[in-house]
Amino acid sequence: MTTILQIETATTACSVALARDGEVIGLKQINQRNIHAEVITLFIDELLKSNAVNYADIDAIAVSSGPGSYTGLRIGVSTAKGLCYALDKPLIAVETLQAMADGVRTINSVDLPQGTLLCPMIDARRMEVYTAVFDGASNRLQATAALVIEERSFDDYLQHRPVLFFGDGAEKCRDVIGGNPNALFMPEFANSAAYLTNKAFEKLSSGDVEDVAYFEPYYLKDFIAGTKKV
């Protein structure tokens, strides 16, 4: 049996999951801003205890690698790397938007028109989002990018097929691109460590792991510190 601890902190969700042989066996999460540093290690301890899994039983640690929140990514990746060093376990990186696309496919309640494309969006402030486009099998059609959303941003896709927009950056774009009848929205979507499962198990099985010493999150954009208010 292969047991993977999965960590997701790239968005407002702070989430940890345990997967065994590609199936989720435990999950603990909260969707709340600026709480990741306070709860991530507690969530991991509680998740392992509730599933009667010891740290030594973990075969690998997977982490959502970005793009996303700079602070959230630092917390998740630092936690994952610390566990890898302490336990001498491999590190698996799963791109956040890829995991989100995989997640939509696992939500049984989603009933989409045939041929619908998947467009996860992570809020990057103002009208900018981190985004990519995938087909219904989670194959990438458009590379990950930081985009300022305009009325015609996805016309090349929306002219021909329905596109499902989801994630914490999608709702703010509804007024801009939602007038197209092929633009679909899923406001109830919340990111989760459970969505790393397929890609994490696939990567570990193929030996696609990271160098723990040198791995860094995929920020996509440079961090710009704001001015502290007085």
Rank of each mutant, 00 (worst) to 15 (best):
C119P: 00
A80E: 05
A60V: 01
M127C: 06
T96H: 07
M121V: 11
I61Y: 08
R74D: 03
E95N: 15
L118R: 02
G68C: 14
S69V: 00
D57S: 06
T116V: 01
L87I: 10
L118T: 04
V77N: 08
D88C: 07
L112I: 01
G103W: 10
A124L: 05
L87S: 10
R125P: 14
R125N: 15
M100G: 03
T131I: 03
R125I: 12
K89G: 01
L83W: 08
M127K: 12
R74L: 03
G76N: 01
I75E: 00
A101H: 04
V63H: 06
L97T: 11
G66F: 11
T71G: 11
A93G: 14
A56C: 04
V94D: 04
V94N: 09
M127W: 13
A93T: 08
S109M: 03
L73F: 07
A62N: 09
A99C: 10
A93C: 15
N108V: 04
V94S: 09
L97V: 12
D59W: 02
M100H: 04
Y130V: 11
I92Q: 10
G103M: 11
L91Q: 12
I61T: 08
E128W: 09
T131V: 05
D59H: 05
I58L: 15
R125W: 11
S65W: 08
S64D: 10
D111R: 05
N108S: 11
D123Y: 07
A99T: 07
G76T: 04
L91G: 13
V63L: 07
G68V: 11
S65C: 15
T106L: 14
G68L: 10
D57E: 09
R74F: 01
V63T: 08
I61N: 03
L87E: 14
D57P: 02
A60R: 01
V77M: 14
M127A: 07
P113R: 01
Q114S: 07
A99N: 09
I58R: 08
V129S: 05
T79C: 13
V77R: 11
E128P: 03
A124K: 09
L73S: 13
M100A: 08
A60H: 01
N108C: 02
M121I: 10
S78T: 15
L91D: 14
L117W: 12
Y130R: 11
P120K: 07
S64L: 08
